[in-house]
Nucleic acid binder design. Structure first.
Lengths: 342, 342
DNA sequence: GTGAAAGCGCTAACAC
DNA sequence: GTGTTAGCGCTTTCAC
């Protein structure tokens, strides 16, 4: 029911204060505050009168005043390297609705370099966000800022290398992911596998590569050191690597990539070489970016568990600062056509 | 020079107030406020003393208190349909650094449906952002919310159809874009052109299509009505359309797409049909999403003028509410390999 | 140009 | 459980 009374309209001009609501409901401002913030047990006549008055006056709290008094800003900060990064974008889309439905507000900081990330963390902390979620860019070390603020504000680092042990950490269980990939390929009759990864010999990429090796051995598959290549995380790189790989005598049955972009280049190269995916060669990507479902054939990839990352991060923030813990979440292998036997 | 005095460290524990700065600098809180907010003319001894004291105490303003008193929140709100949308992501990456460098904070709202967009606009307005930038999702009509808040908060609509005339509007000059595309193709020796667009017969897409026709005629090129197709904005759609298009007798020299994703499907289909891009057929995309520079060959596309969109939007916000104006910005044709004669 | 003081709207303490 | 009241930290009159 849309209120269209004169009062509601007048109210929307100059936002009404809690005092007006209190007057209209015949209670004190304290009661109004308690009812509207849910800090009051019963839902009796008084509570309803207050809510009715608030609705009638089109009242909404003044967050500045509320924050000034209570030190709770009802905001969550998020720092990401770039909105163009598919992981960050996926996280953003998953996080915002949850934050908003809690009638909180999302404050966003974007920074690729370590310096910019530090800067954004500082900004958000000085805004006194109720919690801060940070997707560190590869290689950035934010431990100094984190340590400086971790006492006062719950900070959750998502993915990457844990460098500060005073913040919470939500990471992706890459080992499970790799186990799922290799197990799936073995099921499809694959016997030998190549591995193509991004350029930076970062902690994360080294770790993933190590897991690849472990899982390949565990599943009884084979690989070769000259089938394991590191290059840019670009289509062209995947393309060139593949051309070289398959130009040589003897080639793998499958190519596992540490990124969808590379996998895409691989698929293009295989096409150019006249080999068909998945019949001749199977291909698996990583991150389940939009490109994965757009290729022909569609690409099997590993989807980060965005919803669980969000819920765990917010849970850790709720728990408050001071008791840092680490949760590791298994991603989901999204099996599409590029890796299936047919 | 990094201050590491005992005071600075103690100060960083419990953030210091303007009163402590005033005491240390031997002035009143009013003077501190004036100096730090730049509302004071001279940069004399006093000003320097104040700044030095502030630095020493590691002081930063309490935005909540500042906002409560002055009604200026130092925040900019942005509403987008999805972070996965390449235009929104590009805008986000361009906007954030500018907002931040002004020591303001970006508040983000994400909503695909009209209802969610309205909701996010309401949230941000009730947070009293200093300005609101909205990328409306296709077909959404936000005029009602806009009208309701336009008096109090400067609102800038970016792109899409202008439905409220009480807000500012920054749009992309698609006509110039189309002129550049067709002119470029004509220069490359193209004589006949097909046009593939996204599904929704929205105002925007209809407009772009009309401009395509105008420009094709103006440049002396030809097209055919069965070469102008509307479908999903997906790779597969582009693929299927192309297969059908080029299966028929007689086909165009070039394909202009209203989206990079479609163009990508077109390129894959042409490859599958054994036709080479750009030798046999030229292809042009739209939006310059990351995919455009990742295809093989790289794709010519139209890049939205993100930086100018940002600067114009912020300029309009600075001008305040009440004098809505409309600026139209020409995008840039990024010529890559898919459209060049060789 | 500077300082003293009021007060923005709300919530937390406290008294009832 | 409810009302009264103080005061969060800042900006902005208003005197000087």
């Amino acid at each position: 029911m849309k209120e269209r009374s004169t009062m509601a309209n007048r109210a929307s001009k100059s936002p009404s204060s809690i005092l007006e609501v209190a007057t209209l409901a015949n209670v004190s401002t304290a009661t109004v505050s308690r009812v509207l913030s849910g800090r009051r047990a019963k839902d009796d006549d008084i509570a309803q009168r207050v809510r009715k008055a608030a609705a009638e006056l089109n009242y909404s709290v003044n967050y500045a005043a509320s924050a000034l008094r209570s030190d709770v800003t009802n905001t969550i900060g998020l720092v990401i390297p770039s909105a163009t990064d598919s992981f960050s974008a996926g996280l953003l889309d998953a996080l915002e609705p949850v934050v908003d439905s809690d009638s909180r507000q999302l404050l966003l900081g974007i920074g690729e370099s370590e310096a910019m990330q530090v800067d954004r963390v500082e900004s958000l902390c000085s805004r006194k966000v109720d919690g801060l979620i940070v997707v560190t860019s590869a290689g950035a070390d934010l431990s100094e800022v984190f340590d400086r603020h971790a006492d006062g504000i719950p900070i959750v680092q998502v993915g990457g290398r844990q460098r500060s042990f005073r913040t919470d950490m939500v990471s992706i269980d890459e080992n499970t992911a790799m186990e799922a990939i290799i197990g799936h390929l073995a099921d499809q009759g694959v016997e030998s596998v190549a591995y193509l990864a991004g350029e930076e010999i970062s902690f994360e990429s080294a770790e993933l590569f190590a897991m690849f090796h472990t899982q390949v051995r565990a599943a009884g598959l084979t690989t070769q050191s000259d089938w394991n290549r590191f290059g840019d995380c670009t289509v062209r790189r995947g393309f060139d690597c593949t051309i070289r790989l398959f130009g040589e005598r003897g080639h793998p049955d499958a190519v596992v990539c540490a990124d969808d972009t590379i996998a895409f280049g691989v698929m293009m190269a295989l096409h150019a070489l006249g080999m068909s995916v998945p019949e001749d060669i199977k291909v698996v990507g990583y991150n389940d970016s939009p490109i994965a479902s757009a290729t022909l054939p569609t690409m099997t990839s590993v989807r980060p568990p965005y919803d669980r990352i969000v819920s765990e991060s917010l849970r850790l923030i709720e728990a408050g600062p001071g008791h840092p813990s680490h949760v590791s979440l298994p991603p989901e292998l999204v099996v599409r056509v590029s890796s299936t036997r047919r």
